[in-house]
């Protein structure tokens, strides 16, 4: 299957197979006007299978969110058909308004305008906890 290379935009590569759609949803890519391609289950020497997202247009993306969903992913920025930067994404120490606390006893469940903040408490096991009630994400 061929997807055209892009001129100006972003390629999110090395996404764990199956996480492409999750990222697409969380990054809000459905709202973009430019072409966006999700390629699933692409063969990969490193991962066996991977997903790729190509965004053919200049846009701001939330690197913290990518790091939270899939810290193994890489982000390539393309300008005038050239790769201008390639970065791997680390898990962010803090997530702000990315995910919501599911604990019904948490203050953030009743006070809807509170900023949703999660802190990385165990990097090895990818554990984020709510700033307010310390429940696991």
């Amino acid at each position: 299957m061929n997807i055209d290379s892009i001129t100006n935009g972003i390629v999110i590569d090395h996404i764990t197979a199956g996480s492409g759609m999750v990222l697409y949803e969380l990054l809000g890519l459905a709202t973009l006007e430019c072409p966006v391609a999700i390629i699933k289950n692409v063969g990969s020497k490193k991962l066996g299978k991977k997903d790729i997202i190509k965004i053919d247009g200049e846009t701001e993306i939330d690197f913290d969110l990518i790091g939270y969903v899939d810290p193994k992913a890489t982000v390539n920025v393309i300008k005038n058909g050239e790769l201008v930067s390639k970065r791997s994404i680390d898990m962010p120490e803090k997530l702000v308004n990315v995910i919501k606390c599911k604990n019904p006893r948490c203050i953030s469940s009743t006070e809807q305008e509170l900023t949703q903040v999660f802190k990385l408490t165990d990097k090895e096991n990818k554990v984020y906890r709510c700033l307010y009630c310390e429940s696991k994400a």
Binding site: C106, I107, E111, L114, C130, L131, C133, S135
Partner: peptide, 10 residues
């Protein structure tokens, strides 16, 4: 004292 967890932090 508050019934919701995290309220005193807020």
């Amino acid at each position: 004292r508050h019934p919701k967890e995290g309220a005193p932090l807020v």
